[in-house]
Design a protein around this nucleic acid. Sequence first.
DNA 1: TTCTCCATGTAATACGTTACATGATTGT
DNA 2: ACAATCATGTAACGTATTACATGGAGAA
Lengths: 181, 181
Amino acid sequence: MKKTRYVILGLLRDENMSGYDIRNCINTRMSFFWKESYGQIYPELNEMLKEGLIKESNEKAQVDGRGKIKYTTTDKGKEIFCEWMAATNEKDTVRSEALLKFFLADDANKSDIEKHLKDFYQQNKERLDLYLSFADSLKQFAEAHNNHKYILKMLELGIKQQKVNCEWSKEYMEELGRGLL
Amino acid sequence: MKKTRYVILGLLRDENMSGYDIRNCINTRMSFFWKESYGQIYPELNEMLKEGLIKESNEKAQVDGRGKIKYTTTDKGKEIFCEWMAATNEKDTVRSEALLKFFLADDANKSDIEKHLKDFYQQNKERLDLYLSFADSLKQFAEAHNNHKYILKMLELGIKQQKVNCEWSKEYMEELGRGLL
DNA sequence: TTCTCCATGTAATACGTTACATGATTGT
DNA sequence: ACAATCATGTAACGTATTACATGGAGAA
């Protein structure tokens, strides 16, 4: 089942946003467990408008200058968001090309693996730093929004996961470097 | 880019397999970072046959009884597998409905979150046990195949990840239970 | 003025799942 | 005899990415 509308609805509860904002927010803050492309977001927004799940918020439209269209959730939107929240989750769809290569490796492609481990470490380190700084900025306003503490909890997990990935790839690289494998 | 053929090629290097075998192997051993459905595997196998990346291995066909068709990689298949192995990885496609809900939670859906945390813990625990037993069985034949040590390394990461997820969700549940959040 | 980024959108294409059809084999 | 599982396959459908089109705003 498509979940685009629920992410949108979830974000709009907190703050009025344009399609562009939504896409950016998802692909930065939420990037370690989600992403969306414009090709999904814009058509979905118009669909949701028709269904009355969101509406344009003209209040802030001018403040921001541009022809930007900001949206808010309607009561109906909040309702279907809550229904989704309460429902049992589908099985995750996880696909990692790096992990796939690590799994399928053998002696013939040892040097490729070393390269991919390096990239893997780098990417996880970058994300780790991103989440740490995001968590820091949230902590400063922990009282401001009641949902901040939930996001912080979530980030805590992301940080732990990135750390595990970094440690593992570092160790693995060292083992390969010392010819232990 | 579709990666189905590379998984297939990777598995076939090690052992002759049928489409059914391949699908089972992916959806059990590799389930924490990959999956494929019959609708992808069978058409892909026929496509690969046409392109000369794999061929039927009639040797073992009878041994197994059934009308099972087992495949092996050809030289050309090995070649394109190696090319893929050496290439830089695409960004991962990660989508977890559970994590999405944890991120989008607020006080209004606290009880939903508790339920999802319970499920999350349960699923991660089950996977953890699965990988532990898989790792155990591989360790017994660690010398048999030169690729076993790479798979073990990979499983090591999977095990660490599952553990982190279990610990995090357990802690989170306790905090919620004690009304700390 | 030209470049870059903001901003919205769509059409073509690629990818993936589901549900169904079919039939053999094994265990009870 | 019956159910379960093995085994292969396809058509319909749903979902997601890509590439492109369009144009305004701000900076160099």
